[in-house]
Design a binder for these strands. Structure first.
Lengths: 213, 213
DNA sequence: TCAGAAACGGAATCTAGTGTCAGTTTTCGG
DNA sequence: CCGAAAACTGACACTAGATTCCGTTTCTGA
């Protein structure tokens, strides 16, 4: 019979807490390695070395290389979706002007997530090169975020401050494409001023179009 | 002293022509393999096997794996840029209506390039995962195509049918982002009808914006 | 402080795939 | 048709790196 370990309020023994902590550290180290050198160029040994642990130890926490990258990406996606969903609900606005400001805020949030740590978009960019499944997953993510955007558009159409004939689904994809474009631009040239102009240009296209009045 | 081979009008011996032809075949086979299984998952042996040749022969035509993928990507990019640049010059239009039609034509061309063979966008999508250099190259490509778009916008601003206060560089990135978005959407769901709607939505956003009048 | 359990570490194993090479076949000019 | 030159082939040598394994160390609870 095994000894019953002491548990704290959350029902986790000290050992279990430490284990979770180590998993967290490995995920962070792996993220750093993958973003810096790329998935295929980093070995398990690199990840372990970054934490000063033997690489055999790695396998006590994760199944294999594929397993860790799965966790790294999941973590990354959660951080992004979390930061997005947190503050701005589609229902929070009901005029075009409100919506403009809301989209500026969302743009700001995105810029600060990605801009603060270029390793995030860099890893996302190379993720489709990991394997077919990951590639599909990234396309799915793009689609998911488009549904997000679609919810905002839909709300606007219902309240009447956006065009009634808007093809919501398709337009959401187009808008998210613009955002993606600005992220890619940031990877080439992380100048914040430039990022700011890109955000402004996106909003200008969205609200005013490009044609002279 | 070596024998002088017979040369044809173009100054190429029969052997040289065959050699070029074989290189072409290898590039095509490599393209197919990379697009289907992914770069890292395909071996030189796979490429050779597809052509029914021994994989040793491969090395008579290309230095190594990196060399071939370089050629495959270059070829791909040339096909895309070629198809784009061929028919539509920015100077060919001088009214907003013309420009609308021109952008519809360009969208059509893009859709037919990518839509006709999804292996092209698929490989482009995973290209940044090949290595750092290729990743940079893809970002550069995105930037290059934005300069393309910028030339159209610039022309429109000069002739006065586009807004005078347009931030041309930033707007070009935004527009190309929308196009990229529709390519990604096509990878998830290649339905031509859907593609058509995406194209229409992009143009609607560009010209009319999303706000109710 | 001690015994058993769990965690570690890194040597050893295993695999896959790249790039080489020497023997064989094909091509080509005479 | 002949012999040299070029092209082809696939077995082989080699490397890199993922995963396993077991002797050693650390932890835990009594």
């Amino acid at each position: 019979m095994t000894a019953m370990p002491a548990t704290d309020r959350a029902g986790l023994s000290r050992a279990e807490r430490r284990k979770a902590e180590t998993r967290r550290e490995i995920i962070d180290a792996a993220f750093a390695c993958f973003a810096e050198r790329g998935y295929h160029a980093t070995g398990i040994a690199d990840i372990a070395a970054r934490l000063g642990m033997g690489h055999g130890t790695f396998y006590r926490y994760f199944e294999n290389k594929r397993d860790i990258v799965e966790h790294v990406i999941t973590d990354l996606v959660e951080r992004i979706l979390g930061a997005l969903g947190a503050e701005n609900a589609p229902e929070a606005v009901d005029t075009l002007e409100d919506y403009r400001q809301q989209s500026a805020r969302i743009g700001e949030a995105l810029a600060s997530i990605f801009g603060s740590d270029l390793r995030m978009p860099r890893l996302l960019l190379e993720a489709p090169g990991i394997d077919q499944a990951m590639s599909d997953r990234m396309l799915e993510l793009f689609d998911t975020t488009a549904q997000f955007t679609a919810a905002y558009l839909d709300h606007g159409v219902r309240l009447g401050y956006l065009r009634a004939d808007l093809d919501v689904r398709a337009t959401a994809h187009a808008i998210n494409g613009m955002i993606l474009g600005s992220v890619l631009a940031a990877l080439r040239d992380p100048d914040p001023e430039r990022q700011h102009r890109l955000g402004a240009a996106i909003r200008a296209v969205m609200y005013d179009g490009i044609a002279a009045r």
